[in-house]
Design a protein around this nucleic acid. Sequence first.
DNA 1: CCGAGTGAGTTCTGAAACGAAACCCACTTG
DNA 2: CAAGTGGGTTTCGTTTCAGAACTCACTCGG
Lengths: 163, 163
Amino acid sequence: MADTPRPASTLDQTLRLVGDRWSILIVRAALRGIRRFDDFCADLGIARPVLTNRLRRLVDGGILARERYQEHPPRYEYRLTPAGVALSPALVALIRWAEQHADGGEPGPALVHAPCGTEFEQGFWCRTCATTFGPSAIRAGAHRAARRRATPPRAAPRRAATR
Amino acid sequence: MADTPRPASTLDQTLRLVGDRWSILIVRAALRGIRRFDDFCADLGIARPVLTNRLRRLVDGGILARERYQEHPPRYEYRLTPAGVALSPALVALIRWAEQHADGGEPGPALVHAPCGTEFEQGFWCRTCATTFGPSAIRAGAHRAARRRATPPRAAPRRAATR
DNA sequence: CCGAGTGAGTTCTGAAACGAAACCCACTTG
DNA sequence: CAAGTGGGTTTCGTTTCAGAACTCACTCGG
């Protein structure tokens, strides 16, 4: 009971941090330049207690930094740390997917290449093959153990050790 | 109440679909080749009812397809649709971030370039500038309506909403 | 034919998270 | 000094979650 039956993989840890609707929306808003509590609140339509909670979690997770921008009535703003900025590939990929596959909603502001202001592309690059490629050329690499039997031939429902 | 005060952006819609811990973990497992209910269950350590729910949602959202692989006791398996495969850039980005920024967990099986079996890179490409670049060169582009003022200097309030 | 096994789910639970609205407080502005 | 503001916290009712146990339909081995 005290050991680790869960994978506790790095992805799992990360998802506990940003693997929810609001956190990702908050990071996107931050990328757009939003920094203050009430602005997040108004922009996202998020309930205040939830925002408090998410901001705290993102700060603890090192994605946002809470900085005092005014002394006397102490006021804070939240801005992305380098680690937070490093999330943007994931965000961009999600936004791109959303624009292609979700129907109905409005697309929201595009993210562009800062120097030239135009939209950019995102892709995979294999330096071994010196080629770019898309999602369909991905597969899972070495994996120690596929749990039970590795790949049961489909439609072989019963498979006891008849020996 | 019946209109849409919320943005209802495409990203928002997408996050309602895959914006939670389990959904993303399920997609990763599917990319690794897992297809059957019990295998997902064992691999992820997810509770059955939650898995049922997530699978149904992903199928409804067009990310997984439910296919019968055996007639008599009707058995189904879940495999990624093209739209599901198209999520992999987001997944890869998340995994990469996780491996760099999460500490403690084990990294999990790598995703590799199928033809050569080696790890690959992910990046941004601006075709206008004909250059690759990283997350720090991104900014938000044109936005039809910046909500309120873009960057308030300080204390210049406006709040005509219900209070 | 009987009993064990399997794959894919369902019901029941109690715990946690969410959302809305109200409240708080240290200040600033008119 | 009253009214605002920015940045929260409290309270409370509702929805969703996660886990254990149970069901169902079928197959297999003896």
